[in-house]
Write a protein that binds this DNA or RNA. Structure first.
Length: 359
DNA sequence: TTATATT
């Protein structure tokens, strides 16, 4: 049995349309707002990220005019993408520069300008199978690019065999008619040198799921909810892998979840409405909110982060706070990140206590 | 042998 653990993908950045204009909202002659330089689409969001977390993350960059995490109309499940419209085009640019590529849990988010919404860009996603195993993503893009502008392409790979192609992929075109032309031109055709013809068809659309698939999804969601926590040993193993994969920093002075749990009972502020507040000490003067999202995001639902800055210099005063929804995830984050070496600093991470609250 | 990008 083949397990799909990863894919390889090339991402085309959407540029804001039109020529560069002065900052601030641009009002066109017909009275509508031109949001091409302020409106962003965010893809590959973790499944469990909420609207609040989404807003908090992107609000750390600058003032948001509006934002929306897109959900399935029927199940209410996140579709893994959302939109953020900033007030200032400079903040949109800053969000792309600082948050694109951010690792949150198992995902690497993509932040890019949203194309103007229109019916012509919907259902432009193709499923391709029967690709030669030797065909790279670049090869596949080259083959399809004659039919239009490619927004994303992806070849599914099998990680247990170190990223060998499964011969299956996706191509998203800018326009649906480009996708239609690609089907006409390439379905059933042999790519040059290939032994077998490829199949090219429209990809399944998540909003067009069958009743059966919806039931399966609901069942799986419910089943996950009732699954107890993994054995500690397993959790640590997984977390270390996650961290080693995510960051180029070495673990320092690991402590166990059990020692944290005993510590946790005594001195806690406790869950205050939003969740569990975590105190992070020994951040560098240059630290910003994104580093806290990067550190804590992989452990679970983070609702808010805050870097405490000096009022006059605007430099970090060496500490910050992170709010996490679930106790278990917060405890795991603390257990793994306390003593963590970030650059040349060793972090001190703990639940926020009433004593620290006064200080 | 289909993962998720247009509110």
């Amino acid at each position: 049995m083949v397990t799909i653990i990863s894919t390889m993908e090339t991402q085309v950045s959407n540029g804001p349309s039109g020529t560069s204009l002065p900052n601030g909202p641009v009002i066109s002659t017909n009275g509508s707002t031109d949001d091409s330089k302020t409106n962003l689409i965010v893809n590959y969001l973790p499944q469990n990220m909420t609207q609040e977390e989404f807003k908090s993350l992107f609000g750390s960059i600058g003032e948001i005019e509006s934002c929306k995490l897109v959900r399935d109309k029927i199940t209410g499940q996140s579709l893994g993408y959302g939109f953020v419209n900033y007030v200032d085009p400079n903040d949109a640019d800053k969000a792309i520069n600082t948050l694109n590529g951010l690792k949150l849990q198992t995902k690497t988010i993509k932040v890019s300008y949203a194309r103007p919404s229109s019916a012509s860009i919907r259902d432009a996603n193709l499923y391709v199978s029967g690709l030669p195993k030797t065909m790279s993503q670049k090869d596949m893009e080259q083959l399809f690019s004659q039919y239009g502008r490619i927004i994303t392409s992806r070849i599914l790979v099998d990680q247990v065999t170190a990223g060998i192609s499964r011969g299956v992929g996706f191509i998203r075109f800018d326009k649906r008619n480009e996708a239609e032309e690609a089907i006409k031109g390439l379905n059933g055709q042999k790519p040059l040198g290939a032994a077998e013809p490829i199949t090219v068809k429209f990809a399944n659309n998540p909003s067009q799921k069958t009743g059966q698939a919806l039931l399966t999804q609901l069942y799986q969601t419910a089943a996950r909810r009732y699954t107890g926590p993994l054995h500690h040993q397993t959790q640590r193993f997984r977390l270390d892998n996650l961290l080693n994969a995510s960051y180029g920093v070495k673990r320092f002075s690991p402590i166990t979840i059990d020692s944290m749990t005993s510590l946790a009972g005594v001195n806690l502020t406790g869950p205050t409405g939003a969740g569990w507040c975590i105190f992070v000490y020994n951040l560098s003067p240059e630290a910003d909110e994104s580093v806290l999202w990067q550190l804590f995001g992989p452990f679970g639902a983070v609702t808010n982060v805050k870097v405490i800055r000096d009022f006059t210099t605007n430099k970090c005063k060496g500490f910050g706070f992170v709010t996490m929804t679930n106790y278990d995830e917060a405890a795991m984050a603390i257990a793994s990140l306390n003593g963590y070496r970030l650059g040349d600093r060793v972090l001190q991470v703990s639940f926020k206590t009433s004593k620290q609250h006064k200080a």
